[in-house]
Design a protein around this nucleic acid. Structure first.
Lengths: 165, 165
DNA sequence: GCCATAATTGACAATCGTTTTCAATTACAA
DNA sequence: TTGTAATTGAAAACGATTGTCAATTATGGC
């Protein structure tokens, strides 16, 4: 009675419905270039992981990436996914979002920075940009002599549709 | 080679815990009332935890609370601290801040709203208020016809002390 | 192409923070 | 004071993440 996939949570209800993010299709040779630019060797595993990140939904867990890639390359290891995701997060190639005690979620770093407006009722997510907020954040960080690395800004509320019910 | 205190990280730089002096309860009625309002029974352990939270530094880890209280009540258990902190967090009596993979930090929920500036290296937390950001958030929400309920704004960076290392 | 070699891999164990389990104890309403 | 359900401490379980290490593999130099 064991899982093929280690650490696969059994009864966990997902925190929020995933949102499919439309992405520009990425030229496969681009992946090779991305890996090389990180000073790493190009392997099938890494290509598969990048492909999965690029094609799938946004904000996936390492476990989900592993499952996806594992379906195509059954011999791929769990640690490999973790290691590569971490390495890419270090280089800011993917963005790591850790919320609460839940597993970290990763997405290919979007070209344009955005934050999220989430409906507490239906889970719908709206992305938004607000440069004035960004610069105010930098001002705050500077005031405290912090070197800002990143931030998490999540607004929660009731979306228009849910307000009429 | 064992720790009296379980899970005490070995290499981590400890932020020295505040000393909690055991003394006759000065105004225990306030804490008793808080506990009763949560629908819980009043115990010495819970009073000690509240006293520690109220007297000590803000943004402490459960481990730190345990160490502080344990110095006065050596028989107190680790799980008791965790359980009570979680219960209070559920009731919004304490605010739980979880960043990265670092242990969660707790504070008695402050009356004034503020956000957090967290050091990605040592976990130190600085509070800040920035009303302009608040109003911009409301503006964004209004633009999308969301009824704002709450928000999470966490800035991450390297604190001044960690920058010099 | 082939070789040398350093990076990378997968299986597994270890680690860390957190949560659960359970028998013993305790708060508190009656 | 007593009955009972809540609470406790110790320990183990748990889930996410990271480390270990021998075997494999990508890649630069020939």
């Amino acid at each position: 009675m064991e899982h093929l996939i280690p650490h696969l949570a059994k009864g966990r209800t997902p925190l929020e419905p995933e949102k499919l993010i439309r992405r520009d299709p990425v030229d496969p040779t681009k992946f090779r270039r991305m890996i090389r630019q990180m000073g790493l060797k190009v392997t099938q595993q890494r290509l598969a992981i990048l492909e999965s990140l690029s094609a799938g939904r946004a904000h996936v867990t390492a476990q989900e990436v592993f499952e996806t890639v594992n379906a195509v390359y059954p011999e791929i290891g769990f640690a490999t996914v973790y290691r590569f995701l971490r390495k890419m997060a270090e280089q800011k190639l993917v963005t790591e979002v850790r919320m609460g005690g839940l597993p970290a979620r990763y997405e290919l770093t979007p070209r344009r920075h955005h934050d999220h407006l989430t409906c507490v009722n239906c889970g719908q997510i709206v992305e938004f940009e607000c440069p004035p907020i960004e610069s105010l954040q930098e001002k705050v960080a500077k005031e405290h002599n912090f070197q800002l690395t990143h931030h998490v800004l999540e607004l929660y509320g009731v979306c228009p549709r849910c307000q009429t019910e």
